[in-house]
């Protein structure tokens, strides 16, 4: 558990970060909280000759709750998400999800930006951001660009972010209606056996919109448009729940690991989604 030698960079601004990235290409990696990258380096599974610490780069630690959107800086920690009262009112699903990530010590260091940018299928924030239809802002040598969360993830650890780009902010349209982040895990600190993010809008007894994303059930987070669509126009009755679960199962592609075989994961994914929808609906 000892990493190979690396050069440690601690630039004071984004220009400095981009300069190191430009100079060293894919030999350089940026680090926010470090809770994914450092273990990989210590296991010598990630070789990072140039490590760029973002701690001193300002301007990425704010949570800005606006009338119709929320902007979260990439360096905002999970602990800050949990403690932010205004955010808890505006988007309670973020707090519910963050409380289920790792443990308090990790949440003091782990950041939203690092969680979404790393592309680890086990991370909870990517699925959540897909559910919320977030947009990721990245900055690179050619300036800023926005990438929808639902188009960001290509494969495990492979994303639409280029090597010389840095993810700086996450923008979420103000969520509406009921919500739930439901996660089954083996123990504190574990990745999900299955997790579901659900945001649901209700008009009377009718569901008018529903957004559903799943975590750790494929090599990327899975935004299941069809699962959401199966609920729209229904009263979220047993038939609709069944249709949503069936649609979701078509979209996920779990693999066997120590958490269990594929049949178990599919079954649990269905149970977890069902519970998430029911809870979100009860809050809608």
């Amino acid at each position: 558990m000892i990493p190979a030698a690396f050069e440690y960079h601690r630039p004071q601004d984004m220009a400095g970060v981009l300069a190191v990235l430009e100079e060293h290409g894919d030999d350089a990696r940026v680090m926010a909280g470090g809770h994914s990258l450092i273990p990989m380096m210590k296991l010598r599974m990630a070789e990072v000759p140039h490590l760029i610490d973002l701690q001193d780069v300002g301007g990425m630690s704010d949570i800005d709750v606006r009338a119709d959107s929320i902007v979260i800086g990439a360096m905002v920690t999970q602990a800050e998400i949990i403690d932010h009262a205004e955010l808890a009112d505006a988007a309670p699903i973020l707090r519910e999800a963050a409380l289920q990530i790792a443990d308090p010590q990790v949440r003091y260091m782990g950041t939203v930006g690092g969680n979404v940018a790393n592309g680890d299928p086990g991370n909870d924030m990517p699925g959540l951001m897909q559910c919320l239809n977030a947009v990721f802002t990245v900055v690179g040598p050619d300036g800023e660009r926005d990438i929808p969360a639902r188009e960001f993830y290509e494969a495990a650890y492979m994303t639409a972010r280029e090597d010389e780009e840095v993810l700086t902010a996450v923008t979420i349209p103000a969520p509406k209606g009921g919500y739930a982040y439901e996660k089954q895990k083996r123990k504190i600190g574990d990745y999900a056996t299955a997790a579901a993010a659900v945001q649901i809008v209700r008009d009377g007894s009718n569901c008018v919109s529903a957004s559903i994303a799943m975590t750790n059930l494929s090599d990327t987070p899975v935004y299941s448009e069809n699962a959401g669509a199966a609920l729209v126009g229904t009263s979220v009755d047993a038939a609709a729940l069944g249709a949503a679960v069936a649609a979701m199962l078509d979209d996920i592609d779990p693999t066997e690991d120590n958490r269990g075989p594929v049949a178990f994961k599919n079954h649990v994914a269905g149970v977890i989604l069902r519970r998430a929808i029911e809870r979100a609906w009860s809050r809608a």
Binding site: Q184, R186, R259, G260, P261, F264, H267, V268
Partner: peptide, 16 residues
Amino acid sequence: HDHWRIWRTANELGLH
């Protein structure tokens, strides 16, 4: 008796 093995017992007993 981790989650999936307990689930398997339930499954094999026809409880699903």
